[in-house]
Design a protein around this nucleic acid. Structure first.
Length: 276
DNA sequence: ATAAGGCCCTGACCGC
DNA sequence: TGCGGTCAGGGCCTTA
């Protein structure tokens, strides 16, 4: 499941592959994948455009086109983007093809069809609800304190809330809380400033580590993520708690426990992340 | 305003 | 072997 480090890894790989390449046209096989504008207009607008700039905001991929518009892609759970040679045919999970003048084709695949694509003039119209970008100056302890003040929801739930901080998903939320020694169920507003300072550091640290290791490539199954060059990332090997239920905590040896918070599977060490 | 639950999807997995 | 049920989960939507 692509979170910030996986999306960042994608963009770093795609930028040199796609820079200045021209889109001949788009083929949409499952129209609901295009969130905006409507699919026929999407095809009209993207025809003949070149890839100009590349960016990321939270888990959103941003492709700036030479028209001034931006192609925004969110992979959600199972989306994949691949630049393929002409002889690679789309399969039943391919919902969008962008044909390039180079003959290559960008395949958007998505087993669960949760991902979405936008083509907009105003990026903010899609991203306006996002909170601060965690590895930038916009993210700070003070900001975190302010955003969580008076909130009773468990801290795990608010770490997943993209308006609090952008880009953190289930994997890195669990890892950050473990690193900070904070129980995932603690009411957010009850955390004191020193706990939030540790959490701030931990969020930055686990995300940067994830980027440095080129993302987490988890086991088999539909949530498996591979960077666009097909080489697995290595961040999963540095996971301390995520999907390690029953295995010894790397710090104290107690078995890692699992519980559900905000409908999300949550992994933690009861010893190192005490309640209250 | 916040919190909690449902929804979208489909492949994997489980028990019978 | 086949079948039904359950699970996973990001972000948006509805409900309380």
């Amino acid at each position: 499941m692509p979170e910030l480090p996986e999306v960042e890894t994608y963009m770093r790989a795609l930028a040199p592959q796609l820079k200045d390449k021209e889109i001949v046209n788009a083929q949409i096989f499952w129209p609901r994948i295009v969130a905006q504008p409507d699919p026929s207009l999407f095809c009209d607008l993207i025809r003949g455009r070149r890839f100009d700039s590349f960016g990321r905001r939270g888990k959103y991929m941003l492709f700036g086109l030479n028209s001034g518009e931006t192609l925004i892609i969110h992979l959600r759970m199972t989306g994949e983007l691949r630049v393929q040679p002409p002889n690679v045919e789309p399969d039943s999970h391919t919902h969008l093809l962008l044909n390039l003048t180079s003959g290559e084709r960008i395949h958007y695949r998505d087993q669960r069809k949760f991902g979405r694509v936008w083509l907009v003039e105003d990026v903010a119209s899609v991203l306006h609800k996002l909170g601060p970008e965690p590895l930038s100056d916009d993210f700070s302890v003070e900001g975190l304190v302010k955003a969580l003040a008076g909130r009773s929801a468990p801290i795990k739930a608010l770490l997943l809330d993209q308006s609090i901080v952008a880009g953190v998903g289930n994997i890195y939320a669990d890892e950050a809380l473990f690193r900070a020694g904070i129980n995932p169920r603690r009411p957010s507003g009850h955390l004191d400033e020193s706990a939030l300072a540790r959490l701030y550091e931990a969020v930055c640290w686990v995300l940067q580590m994830g980027i440095d290791l080129r993302g987490s490539s988890l086991g088999s199954g539909p949530q498996n993520y591979l960077p666009p060059n097909g080489v697995a990332g290595a961040a999963q090997e540095s996971h301390q708690v995520f999907r390690r239920t029953g295995q010894p905590c790397p710090r104290c040896g107690q078995p890692i426990q699992r519980m559900v918070i905000a409908q999300r599977s949550t992994h933690f060490c009861a010893q190192c992340q005490p309640e209250g």
